[in-house]
Design a binder for these strands. Structure first.
Length: 779
DNA sequence: CAGTGAGCGAGCTTCCGCTTGACTT
């Protein structure tokens, strides 16, 4: 039995460290936190100065049991959880839960997993820092109080099962506010003017030079007038200015920057990035993937240096140590980097290889020299007017880190004029004009958030931690506040005016804009909850709330304030706010008056009802007044939003279901259901295809659809049996199958469905698939 | 599968951060 038990947070880390420490040390993992506030109720005795009651988490019972028995046998227990607030708390909880003896317990920390760092840590043990632990308790209890006091208010005032919290509610706020900016955005347009000149390149061949006018015109007429002036103008180069420039590499990856780049360059979702990174980490290929530090160990820096020298030459190498810029970083780990920097690639799944290479390149590039650039600006004068055309070019004199890696930006289309080499041009050259285009361009609305750009924003505000970025995104979607989806763009016309060979031509063209792919959109309920919280809990919703409480946590960590005192200060006004809100607030349903119905004169509202967003015609009458006419209701259709639905759209909704007439003595109606537009006849439903809609479809068209459906149904029946009317052999989308008492059974391949006897069918049903378990969908 | 829009009011929901699997398709 080993004399020493070392406890770390992660099992992969334990494996590595054990190798460094040798036989006398047994290294085990706590798998993160082992205890938490009790799951039920507050888990905090508010009356009794916020005394927390902790319980071993259900999935950690076995871990604690094992560590307890191992710690009894060991002479010394070394608690080596991370050196940050949460890590210190884990150490303390271990000490308490394992019932450790203070004399044989030592707290150690290390920032990098190298033999020397770990041995050094062993020689410098310390005691558990109770102040830091207290800061964590304050953080933990505050989050519980905020979440568990506000959520029930939402259950009462908005809808059951909703949630609010210090982090998630602010994340939703960001998305809601961005959506409103977009809704309120009106695009303006102006005319951008570009000229193409014909010049000779260095071999004397014709080549073109593109230059943009140093002015944009507000209107079509101004642009046209300018082109008129250009008709018989001449163009002369006023000057050619060359300026050196440089570009520096980005810092090595943190969790947040890795998620952003993997999203931009590889198209990974935030959760996907984390699970691929986890596999690389467990395989020992990369360092820990949940970190906010950009720090590289000296070993890593040296290995990178020799790798760069060897692969690219010394002038490509430049040692750099980056400093973190993000708020509230705790830097318990290194930056994310390859464990063995000498390995450019790894074996494994495709995704793992790609992510590894991204990490490798970013790490190597961070230790490489700047790129040296030369920017050239050519100013071209116009004889008839003061405006100027400007041509710009940028060439790379020395590529430096660009040889390996360039960080992407969120809107790449705007700045993709990378390496543009201008043809040789000199001052006073007279240029031949090929053509001038004046093109109408529209201003761009603010972009919607992607998962990764939301993470970036949260990190900038110091909200959330590397271990929670991916879960936050999942939570706000699971609660139904936010959806990630694609939305179609729209088409618009724009004008182009072209001057070529002395002639001016105008043309209308079309462009698509606003198509969104994999973006985050607030739902109606997300907006209603956000507005409610903004109205009654503005302190919690403040973007600086986290930063403010973090300041207090830091003071607690320094031992300058009792953590209970901080909570006392926070809780008193907060709880009062909760009580007041329960008393004064109305039920929030996002009701919005759209206008009056032109037919009846009654008001039309949009709001969220029991079954989701709907429109209502007429006032909700007094419940006691039996005489009062009940309002009419209609569900909103997919794609409609509470915030943007118009009066006309609402009026249309009340037109359904529409009676078309009678067929075979039975009513035919048209409406829109969960699965789209349909025609209903004799309790049977027929989908209306794309070529028609329920508002305009005629009785004849509907009958045609009904008959088509009947014909299709007839063809779908392969065989029936008189003895067993419930059993039918049918032809479905995926081939023949047996339908029996509303359940479907697969027919084994290579069976001729037409020849199946009743006995065969019964046999198939007997052996049939085990009834599918219903996958529990979390909403 | 294509509806509903109110109600007895049981018993339930909910937070953030630290870690991995154990699940299903």
């Amino acid at each position: 039995m080993a004399d020493n038990l070392v406890i770390v947070e992660s099992p992969a880390k334990a494996k590595t460290i054990e190798k460094f420490l040798g036989k006398d040390y047994l290294v085990k993992s706590s798998f993160g936190h082992i205890r938490d506030l009790e799951k039920k109720g507050f888990g905090v005795d508010i009356e009794n100065n916020f005394k927390p009651s902790y319980a071993v988490s259900s999935d950690k019972k076995n871990v604690v049991k094992e560590l307890k028995s191992l710690s009894k046998e060991a002479k010394t227990v070394w608690i080596a959880s991370d050196e940050d607030r949460e890590g210190e708390a884990i150490a303390w909880h271990l000490f308490e839960a394992l019932n450790l003896d203070e004399n044989k317990t030592k707290r150690i920390v290390f920032h990098e997993i190298t033999k020397s760092a770990i041995q050094d840590a062993i020689t410098h043990p310390r005691k558990i820092d109770k102040n830091l632990v207290d800061a964590q308790q304050a953080r933990r209890v505050l989050d519980r109080l905020v979440g568990f006091e506000i959520s029930p208010v939402l259950w009462k005032k908005v809808k059951p099962q909703l949630s609010a919290g210090r982090v998630q509610s602010v994340a939703v706020r960001l998305i809601v506010e961005r959506e409103r900016e977009i809704i309120n955005f009106t695009a303006s347009s102006n005319y951008r003017v570009n000229a193409i000149f014909m010049v000779k390149d260095k071999d004397g061949k014709n080549t073109s030079l593109k230059a943009e006018l140093n002015k944009r015109f507000k209107s079509h007429d101004e642009a046209l007038a300018f082109l008129e002036k250009c008709k018989d103008a001449s163009y002369q180069v006023n000057d050619v200015v060359k300026k050196p420039g440089k570009r520096s590499p980005a810092a090595p990856f943190t969790t947040s920057t890795l998620q952003q780049e993997a999203s931009r360059k590889l198209g990974f979702s935030v959760a996907q990035t984390m699970s691929v990174a986890q596999r690389l980490y467990e395989a020992g290929k990369i360092t820990y993937m949940r970190t906010d530090s950009v720090n590289l160990s000296s070993l890593a820096i040296n290995t990178a240096k020799s790798k760069i020298n060897e692969a690219y030459g010394e002038k490509y190498s430049k040692t750099r140590q980056f400093k973190t810029s993000s708020k509230g970083a705790q830097e318990a780990h290194e930056a994310i980097r390859p464990t063995y920097i000498e390995n450019e690639t790894v074996k494994g799944k495709n995704q793992e290889q790609k992510l590894y290479e991204l990490i490798w390149k970013r790490t190597i590039a961070s230790q490489m020299s700047e790129a040296q650039l030369e920017k050239t600006t050519v100013n071209i004068g116009i004889s008839k007017t003061d405006e100027k055309f400007v041509a710009t070019g940028e060439i790379i004199k020395f590529d430096g880190f660009l040889k390996v890696y360039l960080e992407s930006t969120d809107d790449d289309e705007e700045n993709k004029n990378g390496d543009v080499l201008l043809p040789p041009i000199h001052e006073n050259d007279i240029l031949d004009l090929d053509k001038i285009d004046a093109i109408q361009r529209f201003s761009k609305r603010p972009p919607r958030y992607t998962e990764a750009s939301l993470v970036k924003k949260l990190e900038e505000q110091g909200i959330g931690r590397p271990s929670t970025y991916a879960p936050i995104i999942t939570t706000i979607q699971n609660r139904g506040y936010v959806v990630k989806e694609d939305r179609p763009g729209a088409e618009r016309e724009f004008m182009t005016i072209t001057l070529k060979s002395g002639n001016i031509e105008e043309q209308k063209e079309k462009e698509n804009y606003g198509y969104e792919k994999n973006k985050l959109f607030p739902t109606d309920i997300g907006m209603v909850v956000n507005d409610f919280l903004m109205k009654y809990f503005d302190t919690i919703m403040d973007y600086n709330f986290t930063a403010k409480v973090e300041e207090r946590f830091d003071i607690i960590a320094e031992g300058k304030e009792e953590w209970e005192k901080m909570l006392q200060d926070f809780y008193k006004p907060f709880h009062k706010q909760v009580e007041e809100t329960l008393e004064v607030s109305e039920k929030a349903n996002g009701e919005r008056k759209l206008g009056d119905d032109p037919k009846t004169g009654k008001p039309i509202f949009a709001k969220i009802g029991r079954f989701g967003p709907m429109v209502q015609l007429g006032e909700t009458g007094d419940a006691d007044d039996e005489e009062a006419e009940k309002p009419k209701f209609a569900s909103m259709q997919a794609g409609m939003r509470l915030e943007t639905i118009t009066l006309d759209q609402a009026i249309d909704l009340f037109k359904l279901p529409r009676e078309l007439g009678e067929y075979e003595d039975k009513k035919v109606t048209a409406a829109i259901g969960r699965f789209g537009p349909y025609v209903r006849h004799d309790n049977k439903f027929v989908s209306i295809g794309k070529d028609n809609d329920p508002f305009t479809i005629t009785l004849d068209q509907a009958i045609e659809l009904i008959e088509e459906k009947r014909e299709k149904d007839r063809k779908a029946i392969i065989n029936t049996f008189d003895e067993e009317p419930d059993l039918r052999v049918l032809n479905g989308r995926w081939g023949p199958y047996i339908s029996y008492k509303k359940k479907n059974y697969k027919i084994p391949k290579e069976t001729d469905a037409e020849k199946l006897s009743l006995e065969d069918c019964r046999e198939i049903i007997e052996k049939g698939p085990a009834p599918r378990k219903k996958t529990r969908k979390k909403k």
